[in-house]
Design a protein around this nucleic acid. Structure first.
Lengths: 230, 230
DNA sequence: GACAATATATATCATATGATATAAATTCAA
DNA sequence: TTGAATTTATATCATATGATATATATTGTC
């Protein structure tokens, strides 16, 4: 992290706005973003160099500044993009569960919603193309040791996700699982998913990707079913 | 990562051997190692600067070279130290389980060993002083996106840990859980532990640290009990 | 097709960083 | 106490990196 060049004055050349401009510019912008998502997915903020991203995107270095201001700006853009992707993937199910929670709900129904939510999350996380799996690593890294994008990812993904899951767990056990206890278990369940993605290296690729995912889902469903007899 | 200074010739001044030397030197060595463990625990390899470690250890920069050769040497020393600590913490239980596996074992007994193993791991991970918790982050980081210490941590901790757990799961279900399926679940269980440590921020500190750990253990025990009726 | 707006490329800068050469200080066995 | 072995400190280096100034090229509207 060499130059931290205190930026006293406002930047002379303002960065390209995300919307206006020529079409080619828009394309380049997304090219950079995609490359950055891939590279930042597998390596932390400081590990990645701007030149590395530029090369991966097939552009030159100043283009990065032109489109995103600086390295951190690009990193934050990645975080926001990741949030959007998660919303596309599991936002629907999450919203339905959130709405359902506003009314009374019997335990069996809560368990059903919980299964739907975690199944959707499992599929979204584990069936993503291997180049897309980096986004989970990105989130995990920021949550585990906060970097520039922590606020965004924690506030938009992690906290709401845990809270929703915890509430469903509370209903699923007819309140026998206290609120903090529900959070503990929510974190464990979600961590078992995201952690699986990183730790699966031990498993022979032969096992079959889809089979693994189904096994993961089975395990989660069993846990949820077991809640009935807590 | 500025100078990568190709080291053609052998180092002129050999690094201080880990054993011989004066007593003061030995103390300094461990001071540096402890500081590095703390700093590398919370930040990745490239994020951490050697000056940062030197300051944390209260020594000057060349001392780092003198004792560990270079940044990577220190990082690897941290990894080896972490392996040792894990062995102190859960090696006993793990060894017992490994030995027991050499003979036939009924499912109930396998579940008992599994509970012992995971309980020990949970206590070791989650009841560590907050400055010691960094070691789990260290391991998680290396497993998730391999760095200089991957080989050590994967080979000495992750793989054997997963494999042992998977075998116990296999016995605990009287073979109904196939070998790959067992590995999937082993990874999930262990990831739920290590991930909990990182993701627990959401939970109000008020909840009480020890209570959280007991809740984690309860959840694991329930999962293990549920194996009986798979 | 002209020409303002927008986008890309080249060259260069300042600095934080890992590392070393070298000198001064400390330890401890004899 | 002396003096070689060992440890600590000072000063300095080479370079990879984030960023900018500036020039050239491209786009699309009139």
């Amino acid at each position: 992290m060499p130059p931290s060049k205190a930026r006293k004055t406002a930047r002379t050349i303002p960065l390209r706005p995300a919307d206006g401009g020529y079409r080619k510019g828009e394309e380049t912008r997304t090219r950079i973003l995609r490359a950055a998502l891939e590279v930042f997915g597998n390596n932390g903020f400081e590990t990645v160099t701007t030149r590395q991203i530029a090369e991966a995107a097939g552009i030159n270095l100043p283009a990065l500044t032109y489109y995103f201001g600086n390295k951190e700006g690009l990193y934050l853009a990645c975080a926001r993009s990741i949030v959007d992707t998660f919303r596309e993937g599991v936002g629907r199910v999450a919203s339905e569960a959130t709405i359902a929670l506003r009314q009374p709900m019997d335990a069996a129904n809560a368990r059903k919603l919980l299964k739907q939510l975690l199944t959707a999350l499992a599929r979204f996380l584990l069936l993503a193309s291997s180049s897309d799996q980096g986004r989970t690593l990105f989130v995990r890294r920021e949550i585990a040791s906060p970097g520039p994008a922590f606020e965004i990812l924690y506030g938009e993904l992690w906290q709401p996700g845990i809270e929703l899951t915890a509430q469903l767990l509370n209903r699923a056990t007819s309140g026998r699982l206290s609120e903090p206890a529900g959070k503990v278990r929510a974190i464990m369940m979600i961590a078992s998913l995201t952690g699986f993605q990183s730790g699966r290296r031990v498993i022979a690729r032969a096992a079959g990707d889809a089979d693994q995912v189904e096994e993961v889902i089975s395990a989660l469903h069993e846990q949820i079913d077991a809640l009935a007899s807590i």
